[in-house]
């Protein structure tokens, strides 16, 4: 399969790469020291950008690395399926089965024919990314751990760092779904009708409808974050009881692979349901 980028995609990707390069140049120019961290549970490696102390001036480097690693892995996998044939090979039938199931879900939830395809694209993208991100949290790999008052990289001592255990990733996805759903609603119903939807069934219900809409991304993102992050913390805490002998394998399997794949599916189904319910 060939990857095709429009001009807009290229410009956007160029901006992102330029931003990363600027940060890298800044780090090399000023010299980087790993931050001093305590040995508490749940500490993270956080990099402070030179923009003061505002909300957008802190970066979680492991999240960025792992997100890009997963994206590149997915793109390589997609590119490795050479041609889609009538009699599918192993990879093709895996992908077809998975995406077919998602397409069925989308067709059930989204009533308007012309919005099935865009909703499916969003849902499938979210599902593939979150599924891979959750499943690698059940497989031993590279992890950045605060130790000896700094950050240490470990291999096969802990599971892979997963971007979905960072609320920034999940909140981004949830807010994205909220904005996309309302953009679709305005496109489908027209601005006036969309605005009128907030005043149903009575005009006095407006604040409640507004709070209900704003609560969607909160519950949407916190559910995934809580499941993955809480799973990781529980593995750490329960493992103290058995001194890292047998328990982590089972717990990683349970929280990483079982809970992770269910939560990836739930996140996707909810995204489809939110988009579908607003469009109607």
């Amino acid at each position: 399969m060939k990857i095709q980028l429009t001009k807009f995609d290229k410009i956007l990707l160029g901006f992102i790469v330029a931003g990363y390069l600027a940060i890298l140049v800044y780090i090399f120019a000023t010299g980087y020291h790993f931050p001093k961290l305590g040995d508490d549970v749940g500490q993270r490696w956080i990099y402070q950008l030179p923009f003061g102390n505002s909300l957008l001036s802190r970066v979680n480097p492991m999240t960025i690395f792992m997100s890009w690693a997963i994206m590149i892995g997915l793109i390589t996998f997609a590119a490795s399926i050479k041609v889609f044939t009538v009699i599918p090979g192993k990879k093709q039938s895996l992908i077809e089965m998975l995406l077919d199931y998602l397409l069925g879900l989308t067709k059930d939830a989204v009533q308007k024919e012309e919005f099935v395809r865009p909703t499916f694209n969003i849902a499938a993208t979210l599902f593939l990314f979150i599924f891979i991100a959750n499943v690698i949290s059940g497989i031993p790999g590279i992890q950045a751990v605060p130790r000896n008052g700094g950050v240490v990289f470990t291999i096969f001592e802990d599971t892979w760092y997963t971007p979905t255990s960072d609320l920034n990733t999940n909140a981004t996805f949830a807010v994205m779904v909220l904005i996309i759903s309302h953009a679709f609603a305005i496109k489908a119903k027209g601005f006036g009708k969309w605005l009128k939807g907030f005043f149903e069934p009575f005009p006095i219900m407006f604040p409640m409808n507004l709070i209900g809409e704003l609560a969607k991304p909160v519950s949407h993102s916190l559910r995934l974050f809580g499941n993955i992050m809480g799973g990781g913390l529980l593995v750490l805490i329960i493992s103290y009881l058995t001194k890292y002998f047998l328990m982590p394998t089972f717990l990683w399997g349970f929280f990483g692979i079982f809970v992770g794949s269910i939560q990836a599916l739930v996140f996707t189904i909810l995204a489809i349901a939110y988009i579908g319910s607003v469009i109607e």
Partner: peptide, 21 residues
């Protein structure tokens, strides 16, 4: 089974957002 869980989450998140505002 998820419906019950979802109901609880919807209630709690709405209360949270109202309180936050």
């Amino acid at each position: 089974l998820n419906i019950v869980f979802q109901f609880g989450i919807v209630v709690v998140s709405n209360v949270f957002v109202g309180g936050l505002i």
